[in-house]
Deep mutational scan, measured.
Amino acid sequence: MTEYKLVVVGAGGVGKSALTIQLIQNHFVDEYDPTIEDSYRKQVVIDGETCLLDILDTAGQEEYSAMRDQYMRTGEGFLCVFAINNTKSFEDIHHYREQIKRVKDSEDVPMVLVGNKCDLPSRTVDTKQAQDLARSYGIPFIETSAKTRQGVDDAFYTLVREIRKHKEKMSKDGKKKKKKSKTKCVIM
């Protein structure tokens, strides 16, 4: 069974824990209790493949930012979460993405942009803004509501699919490099 290491990042209060708990335990946590770091595991079937999701729910508070490099190193894919009623959390996505790329030393890291709290009427981040940002990053965008469960499975499952595509691409690139290195030079 394939294991996928997913990391949920975003500013404090955007609903990272609520999304994760909704996926794992099928219930909505409405009281806000700032996370330092929590880890969850769940076995699911995605596109006919049974897999184990190892999900790291991270601290959004700035005082825990020193811990970010460590979990970013171990993560295979990242859910970059903002709240649709919090423009600052949307603007912060850029910083999370840049930090992930720096730590992973790669421009090509599996990510999904997630606009959470889409059940709320007080939207300050337009869907088109988020779609445009995701398009500019070359990553999928999904709106979710941890409260109603809308888009929750889709967000995590899409990230797994992005990781699969990335692994497939990397193995193809690896095979191309191996083929090239088999060419021999004969000096007579």
Rank of each mutant, 00 (worst) to 15 (best):
T2M: 15
E3T: 09
E3H: 15
K5F: 02
L6P: 03
V8W: 01
V8Q: 03
G10D: 02
A11K: 12
A11V: 12
G12Y: 09
K16G: 02
A18M: 11
L19A: 14
L19F: 05
T20R: 00
L23D: 03
Q25C: 06
N26W: 10
D30C: 13
I36M: 01
E37S: 01
D38M: 00
Y40V: 00
R41H: 04
R41G: 03
G48W: 05
G48L: 06
T50E: 12
L52W: 13
D54K: 04
T58A: 03
T58S: 09
T58G: 02
A59E: 01
Q61W: 02
Q61T: 10
E62S: 05
Y64N: 02
Y64G: 01
A66D: 12
A66F: 15
M67W: 13
R68G: 06
Q70A: 15
Y71H: 07
Y71R: 13
Y71M: 05
M72Q: 09
M72D: 09
R73Q: 11
T74A: 10
G75Q: 05
G75S: 05
F78R: 01
F78E: 05
C80R: 01
V81L: 11
V81E: 13
V81M: 09
F82A: 14
I84C: 13
I93V: 08
I93T: 08
I93N: 05
H95D: 14
Y96R: 15
Y96H: 10
E98T: 02
Q99R: 06
I100V: 14
K104L: 06
K104P: 13
D105P: 11
V109T: 13
P110W: 01
M111S: 03
M111R: 01
M111T: 04
V112L: 08
V112D: 01
L113Y: 15
L113A: 08
G115F: 14
N116G: 06
N116C: 13
N116V: 14
K117V: 14
C118D: 12
L120C: 07
S122W: 07
S122N: 14
T124M: 10
V125G: 10
V125A: 10
V125D: 10
T127K: 05
Q129K: 13
Q129F: 15
A130N: 10
Q131V: 12
A134L: 15
A134E: 15
R135V: 10
S136P: 15
Y137C: 06
I139N: 04
G151W: 07
A155L: 05
Y157A: 12
L159G: 04
V160Y: 12
V160L: 08
V160P: 02
R164V: 04
K165D: 03
K165C: 14
K169C: 06
D173A: 15
K182N: 04
T183L: 03
T183S: 04
K184V: 14
I187W: 15
